[in-house]
Design a protein around this nucleic acid. Structure first.
Length: 413
RNA sequence: GUGGGUGUAGCUCAGCUGGUAGAGCACUGCUUUGUGGCAGCAGUGGUCGCGGGUUCAAGUCCCGUCAUCCACCCCA
């Protein structure tokens, strides 16, 4: 939890710096709110909550655990028409997916989302990239890639290859390019029954998947508008100092609701897939209210960040905030120890009093050292008589007498 | 949703072809009744994930089930 709170704190700080306001929503939504938003694969992974009573016995579900934070946000926006726009909100909460867990993949995990609602702007799109970049850098990452693509460009690419009617299948396969290579993707497409000519045309278009101008030229007129948008996003992101942002024509993004630019962040050699994803979803709020509200957002996966940070020693070890253990010398002196602990807390110092039997100071020191508590206070007859405490620094074993009035200052971190 | 690995003391694990459970660390005590981290000695601690089955006998074999990890799929 110390590590998690550290990471969450850093991310919230970055979000707040951009003016995002905090929001939380309930763990569950109505089933209808979540269905039809994530595509076929995603929909299978929604945890459904059986109805109470008779309906539940028949397997009917009326509620479901949220699958992400974006759809609940869209629902909130739809129900609160008076919000001043553009509305910028951040949200750090768990989501649930009925998946089989494995490395970097959990049934319950935290997403850290920042979204800009109510405006269709390339600056807003770029701000999402800048926020993600800032957050990753603030956490200590240097080797990461922020990939950028455009849903409409993807459509144009697939159409130009001659497979417009089976766009989803092509995108799922192409998205695996950096994992299974050109041959792997080709094999998958052929296995799915795509024509050799379609596959060949696809590779012509994607000959240089990182080169926006080349992809645009290969696709033709249909690519002009999305390509122009991407250039603006790239320029704005650069102006905001976003690091390692690059166009990638093979970035697909599975979620069904994206309509414009899409993003994804991966830690170089992180081994946990993407740690962040997002994009523009101008149609989602309208699915609830009929009122068209444009929106764009980015999401960071807390646990995936933690997995990589843990592996790379980027997290502080197990620590406690407790600064001092006040030992207990003997029952007759319990009052003195408790009063010292109380005075320390009143002075704002995190202080614990030994809860086991008094005496056996060695045991108490061992406990404190094991907890990572830096100081121990000893109050025996000699100290009480002299109106001081013995303050022992457990890290270097140095011990000295400290007047009560100076104790808080002496142990403060 | 598919395939595979693992589940034995608080922790990390060992336990051969079935014969009635062990190590290291941790913990407790003593050496050291006002001071931890080192050392020595002694000790506490286990429904062997759970439920069935086979057998004279099951941690060990079989079936089921749950949990967990890995890969696929998908994604944060």
């Amino acid at each position: 939890m110390h590590a998690r709170l550290h990471v969450i704190g850093v991310i919230r700080e970055v979000f707040a710096r951009y003016g995002f306001e905090p929001l939380e929503t309930p763990a569950f939504e109505r089933v209808e709110t979540l269905t039809g938003k994530y595509g076929d694969e995603g929909e299978k992974l929604i945890f459904r909550i059986l109805e109470r009573g008779e309906g539940g016995q028949q397997g009917k579900a009326d509620l479901a655990l949220r699958y992400d934070l974006t759809v609940p946000l869209a629902r909130v926006i739809a129900q609160n028409a008076a919000l001043p726009m553009p509305f910028k909100r951040y949200q750090v909460q768990p989501v649930w997916r009925a998946d089989r867990p494995q490395k970097g993949r959990f049934r319950e995990f935290y997403q850290c989302d920042a979204d800009i609602v109510g405006i269709n702007s390339r600056v807003a799109d770029a701000e999402c990239l800048a926020v993600a970049s800032d957050a990753l850098r603030a956490l200590g990452f240097t080797g990461f890639e922020l990939k950028l693509n455009h849903r409409k460009l993807l459509s144009a690419i697939v159409a130009a290859a001659g497979a417009a009617d089976r766009e989803g299948e092509v995108l799922v396969a192409v998205d695996k390019l950096d994992k299974i290579g050109i041959e792997g993707v080709s094999n998958e497409l052929i296995a799915r029954g795509f024509d050799d000519a379609v596959v060949a045309r696809l590779w012509e278009i994607l000959a240089a998947p990182g080169d926006l101008a080349a992809v645009e030229a290969a696709v033709g007129e249909a690519a002009a508008a999305p390509a122009a948008e991407l250039r603006q996003v790239l320029a704005h992101a650069a102006a905001m100092g976003a690091q390692n942002v690059a166009f990638d024509a093979t970035l697909a993004r599975g979620l069904g609701y994206y309509t414009g630019p899409v993003f994804e962040a991966v830690i170089t050699d992180g081994g946990v897939g993407s740690v962040s994803g997002g994009g523009r979803y101008d149609g989602l709020v309208g699915m609830f209210s009929g009122r068209s509200v444009p929106a764009v957002g980015i999401s960071l996966g807390l646990e995936r960040l933690l997995v990589v940070m843990e592996e790379r020693g980027m997290l502080p070890g197990a620590v406690t905030r407790t600064r001092v253990l006040v030992t207990r010398f003997a029952h007759e002196l319990d009052g003195a120890s408790l009063e010292v602990a109380t005075a320390l807390r009143a002075a704002g110092v995190e202080a614990e009093c030994w809860l086991g039997e008094p005496g056996a100071l060695g045991k108490q020191f061992k406990y404190a050292a094991g907890r990572g508590i830096p100081f121990a206070v000893v109050l025996g007859p000699d100290e009480v008589a002299a109106g001081v405490v013995a303050l022992k620094d457990l890290r270097d074993s140095q011990q000295r007498a400290v007047p009560l009035a100076e104790l808080a200052a002496a142990v403060r971190g």
